[in-house]
Simulated scan of single mutants.
Amino acid sequence: MHSRKSLDSFAISLMIILCICWGLQQVAVKLAAPAIHSTVQLGLRSGLAAILVLLLILVRKTPFTLRDKHLLPGLLAGVLFALEFLAISAALNYTSASHVSVFLYTAPIFTVLGLHVLIPAERLQRSQWTGILSAFVGVALAFSGAFAANQHDMADMLIGDALAVLAAILWAATTITIRKSNLSEAAPATTLFYQLAVAAIILLAIAAGRGEPLLTDWTPVAWISMLFQTVVVAFASYLAWFWLMRRYLASRLSVFSFLTPLFGVAAGVILMHDPISLRFALGAMLVLAGIVLVNFRKA
């Protein structure tokens, strides 16, 4: 098993691009929701992306069999992946996309806590824990103004927020499962295929059981949203994420996810004309400061 390394300029640049894509996905789901139910969206994009990944495996002739050592951890990762998306889909029915973004991207907190306990190489120093705290406070501050202005029913909001936190825990559990199993050494396409295929089966089965229509009158916005979610998010960005996880320390990569809700707000400003408050600007600076601290490690 080769050792992971700290982030270099390439990894940092790629993570920023990924965070932009992930920040856009909540807006994409919301934009397509009038035409396609969120659970159907997540199931369809997972299934279509799984087909793309399988084609990539065949073209590259990557060793792959359902009877190899990756099967059980792959199925577990896929189930956790599906449950995370199911929690996100449910959360969006009760609370705002901003709330979901904030609580979903507390996942790095749960990830680094788990990795800190389970993997010696992933243990963080005091300054890095300070960075985690700074980033978390920054995210909370950046969204605090939106919380105050939200008019959703409080009971529904609490349910939605709790589901978003549950999704964050499931995301962290998926990351830890991959790092602590044979999947950590598997080809990125193999890991991604397991997650997408299992998630697609579970999510579409649940959608069908609820009577949610698969084929409806899709609008142009819905088509564009699904294309983005499938090719860019579920296929390309996740493949790049697993490639990074094989080569770099997962706890350092995970902390960059704090940037994602900030990019999500930026997408909201551009696409939905949401205002930017002073709290958001201050929160963004705290997030960036936290990332610098987390990626600084004494020799």
Rank of each mutant, 00 (worst) to 15 (best):
L66H: 08
R67H: 14
R67C: 09
R67Y: 11
D68Q: 09
D68L: 08
K69C: 11
L71N: 10
L71F: 15
L71E: 05
P73D: 11
P73C: 08
P73G: 09
P73R: 06
L75V: 13
L76C: 10
G78M: 04
G78S: 07
G78A: 07
V79S: 07
V79N: 08
L80M: 08
F81A: 06
F85P: 01
L86W: 10
I88T: 01
A90F: 12
A90E: 10
A91S: 07
L92Y: 02
Y94G: 00
S96P: 02
A97I: 14
A97V: 13
A97Y: 04
V100N: 03
V100W: 00
S101E: 11
F103A: 07
F103K: 08
Y105H: 14
Y105R: 09
Y105P: 06
T106F: 15
A107F: 10
F110N: 12
T111V: 15
V112L: 07
L113M: 15
L115V: 03
V117S: 12
V117L: 15
V117D: 10
E122C: 11
R123A: 04
S127W: 15
S127F: 14
I132C: 13
L133Q: 01
S134R: 04
S134H: 02
A135R: 05
V137K: 06
V137T: 13
G138Y: 12
A142W: 00
A142T: 01
S144K: 06
G145C: 04
F147A: 13
A148V: 13
A148N: 08
A149Y: 10
Q151G: 01
Q151N: 14
H152V: 07
D153E: 11
M157G: 07
L158G: 00
L158R: 09
I159V: 12
G160Y: 01
L163S: 03
L163T: 02
L163E: 02
V165I: 15
A167Y: 06
A168Y: 05
A168S: 13
L170G: 03
W171T: 01
A172R: 05
T175V: 13
I176H: 07
I178K: 05
R179I: 06
R179C: 08
R179A: 13
K180E: 10
K180Q: 14
N182K: 12
